[in-house]
Design a protein around this nucleic acid. Structure first.
Lengths: 183, 183
DNA sequence: CTCATATGTTAAGCTACCTCAACAGTCTTG
DNA sequence: CAAGACTGTTGAGGTAGCTTAACATATGAG
């Protein structure tokens, strides 16, 4: 199977991940999660919630009886907390290490939280923790990195072997539909 | 609008991004992209390609006449190269900095390439380039990082402020549906 | 030039996830 | 304990992306 097709075969979809997180959140906040709460929290219609709950129940991720409260199964709660942790790690990395603006970081983390492998999240946590640590090499690194070059032109010769023929950075900052911006 | 809902409002979907990249790839490889080539490359049916091309044409990303070859518009080609660059940056970061296995890195990069903001890709490129550079602080960092703790238990006290009440790492490695593994 | 083969399109149908409108069950309150 | 107000479900309908099967166009070999 082509890799890109596995997208639709992920254990949980983007929507599902957010439903599960919402149930966990509501449960923690108010002790129970009801259809109306979920609908309001996510900004979808109650009927949308009802039908999503049917899918989640079929997959064994929640329990839900007609007109009753929603409960996460162990598996559902595992997904919820894994995605939640993944989001927190991503957010932290994006804002504190990469220095990306908070709103961008929040949005990106929300988009990809359910797609990154546990291995990647774990290593990202390790990297983030280490860079922020009091280890002398980390402190030195933070100082040096703060002033490291932002454009390819400033790279030391050879550093840009990442880029190959065309500068990656240029193609990344190219506004869609226009010629690459020279920097 | 709730952030999570912007998922379906991304300029290009996962599928679209891959169609655009495929057209660019085929064009570069054999000089032209035809429906059959695209179908074979992506492992989908030709009718699927025809209908996706209709969507892409409606969005102004490709040009396609009945029974003819497919061409990218400037906008389409911008998306193709931006996603491609994003993927390369992600792959590099995941394998060379995080040290994640190649197949995991490839799959993850493929899943999220179209979802990460340009800002994030650019900063990720900068970080990757710097860590790999000959800068003394980078060399020192690489050495120190190689032996940095892999589990929360080994963190220096206070380093785990990332985690809050529960260790993020533990919830990330928890096999779905079971109790957290103690490490 | 014609016909078989290769290539491409159409049509109908499926799943996922959403909407709105109508209906049904539950709860509160007089 | 019944009326009305909430809350939840059903049903029909929409978009995106796929599938298969049937049909249409194009091409090149004799």
């Amino acid at each position: 199977m082509e890799i890109w097709k596995r997208y639709s075969e992920k254990e949980v979809s983007h929507s599902m991940a957010h439903y599960l997180q919402t149930v966990a959140q509501l449960k923690a906040e108010k002790g129970h999660a009801r259809v109306g709460d979920i609908a309001e929290y996510l900004g979808v219609s109650k009927s949308g919630v009802t039908s999503m709950l049917r899918s989640l129940e079929k997959r064994g991720l929640v329990r839900h009886e007609r007109y009753g409260c929603v409960e996460l199964t162990d598996e559902g709660s595992g997904f919820a907390s894994r995605t939640e942790s993944s989001r927190r790690v991503l957010s932290m990395f994006l804002t504190e290490i990469l220095g990306v603006a908070e709103d961008v970081a929040t949005e990106d983390a929300c988009m990809i939280e359910h797609l990154v492998s546990p291995e990647v999240s774990i290593e990202l946590l390790r990297l983030t923790t280490f860079i922020r640590s009091k280890h002398p090499a980390a402190a030195l690194f933070r100082d040096a990195y703060r002033t490291s070059p932002r454009s390819c032109k400033e790279h030391e010769p050879g550093a840009c072997d990442l880029c190959g023929a065309t500068c990656l950075r240029e193609s990344l900052i190219t506004p869609i539909g226009r010629a690459p911006v020279r920097i």
